[in-house]
């Protein structure tokens, strides 16, 4: 193996400016090349640490790198007809919180606020967009046509804290339910919604993967795409077998996995109209 910084890069002059070719078809200017070389050094260091960990069981590895030394992406996606299920690029996931379904005004208000925070967290993680259509909150319809999904109160008798849907579910099944137990749960309530929204953008439970404790709830993994290793800190992992967390935070490995499906957050781009 050689150090990227020691490799003489092919130079190409375009309109009087010098570019360096890397990875076959990427042209970088001198500053970009310096950044690229530093990133490659960091990646190699992480891979070496991962190999060390795999060999000796001792050491730490940076986020996003598996013990196999490959870039890792936690999260378990859904496969349909041989392709990963995701929302179409450009889709704005419009939602409302159906005020009239909630028996208490405070419950409605807390769900509105927690949905805002949970959707912001996902939008800061990967290229998904949500929009709260507040005007639909007062709708009498249970499926306002102007939203992709409604969030509504449903008393399931404590059978779940909240429940959601997958992108490939039929349109009339796209809804997020909030049970009264949500109001008193010991889980982070924004975290509960982060988890449910993870389903809504196409991620299955993390604790069903190989490597999860046997005591975690089982479900079929048929039709899922298991790209890399299991992430016990995933937002999609239940609190079971001593793993998972009550915060249900989006882990660094979740971030890598989500970006593999949806790309980086759209806020990171300077979006230009045609």
């Amino acid at each position: 193996m050689t150090d990227s910084s020691e490799v003489r890069r092919p130079e190409i002059v375009i309109d009087g400016q010098v570019f360096y070719r890397v990875e076959g078809d990427l042209l970088l200017d001198a500053d970009e090349l310096d950044v690229y070389i530093e990133a490659q050094k960091a990646l190699r260091a992480q891979r070496e640490a991962a190999r060390q960990l795999a060999r000796t069981g001792v050491g730490t590895i940076g986020s996003g790198i598996s013990p196999l030394g490959q870039p890792s992406s936690g999260l378990l996606g859904i496969m349909q007809d041989g392709r990963i299920v995701r929302w179409e690029p450009g889709t704005v996931l419009k939602y409302c919180v159906l005020r009239k379904t909630f028996p208490e005004r405070e419950w409605y208000e807390s769900v509105v606020e927690n949905m805002r925070r949970a959707t912001d967290d996902w939008s800061a993680t990967c290229g998904v967009q949500f929009e709260h259509v507040e005007t639909a909150d007062d709708s009498d319809a249970l499926r306002p046509p102007e939203v992709v999904f409604p969030v509504r109160h449903l008393d399931s008798g404590g059978q779940f804290i909240a429940a959601a849907f997958f992108p490939n579910d039929p349109e009339n099944r796209r809804r997020v339910f909030i049970d009264p137990s949500y109001q008193t749960t010991s889980f982070d309530r924004v975290g509960v919604l982060r988890h449910e929204l993870g389903h809504a953008i196409g991620f299955r439970h993390e604790h069903i993967r190989s490597g999860a404790p046997a005591v975690c709830p089982d479900e079929s993994t048929e039709g899922t795409v298991d790209l890399t290793q299991y992430d016990p800190q995933s937002v999609m992992h239940y609190f079971c077998g001593g793993l998972g967390s009550r915060e249900l935070a989006i882990s660094e490995i979740d971030r890598v996995g989500a970006q593999k499906v949806y790309g980086p957050p759209l806020t990171g781009f300077n979006l230009l109209a045609a």
């Binding site: 779940f160 909240a162 429940a163 959601a164 339910f177 988890h195 389903h199 439970h205 709830p217 479900e219």
Partner: peptide, 8 residues
């Protein structure tokens, strides 16, 4: 049915 913990 409520299956997989949080799915209908």
């Amino acid at each position: 049915r409520v299956a997989r913990g949080d799915q209908l």
